[in-house]
Amino acid sequence: MSTAPPTARAGVLSRAILYAILAVFAIAYLMPLYVMLTTSFKTLDEIHQGNMLALPDNWTIQPWLEAWGSACIGLECNGVHGYFFNSIRIVVPAVLISGLLGAFNGYVLTKWRFRGHRIVFGLILFSCFIPFQIILLPMARVLGILNIANSVTGLVLVHIVYGIGFTTLFFRNYYETFPNELIRAAQLDGAGFFTIFFRILLPASTPIIVVTIIWQFTNVWNDFLFGVSFASGDSAPITVALNNLVNSSTGVKAYNVNMAAAMVAAVPTLIVYILAGKYFLRGLMSGSVKG
């Protein structure tokens, strides 16, 4: 419900102004996406001659094809598709494993509390907020020692470790709302630790599973710092490839190809956002304020 005081018969004029302001903001917010999208369908000539805000005169998907398959990143000219699949190969295991660990942690930290559970949760939670610069140097060394530096596997490990904090937070806050009597009832019915988790809690966790997957997916997909620090060359994720493509100083800047590549990097998270915005917002909110 709106808290707005229902001003009796707010003037038509003031309503019009209100909608106008909101519309201006909406246009301002959509503008960069619009420009990015239209630019990606223009030829380079048109970009140099035409207006940034105009629709393409001659629609072309050439920039997209080039971005996907033949743009030069570093010395390789195979486009971003390989990096796109790198990102998928990183995201899927990282999301699933950190999510499962978080679900278990949330379950234990709410329903099987032990002495010191608050400290354990506090330590796990704080890991969400550290500036990752603090772990870059030792992590680079450890990945080297484990022989998974510059590899997708290494990035999966990194994302699992630093994803646990948020996944644990989500599941803990969710399971906190389940009455403890539920667990007691199940114990009286003869169910054990894992049976209670898999038969009773997990099937009732769909909303928080969706929130967690979306949150982790967005975070891991959009990561740049870990990617640029721990994976160079062939194992880099899409964000790193995009940055290398856009900010390489060699040759003529193909803005249309850059924008197409940026769209390729943006599309997966945008789709998730459009399909499940409610859950995306819920993740954001519980990542900042509790409950």
């Binding site: 009597e181 539920l182 009832a185 009286l188 009773i200």
Partner: peptide, 15 residues
């Protein structure tokens, strides 16, 4: 060999 009825009923929500 006891059974219990809880204040919150504690019904398993997904079953």
């Amino acid at each position: 060999d006891i059974a219990m009825v809880f204040q919150s009923y504690a019904l398993y929500p997904s079953m």
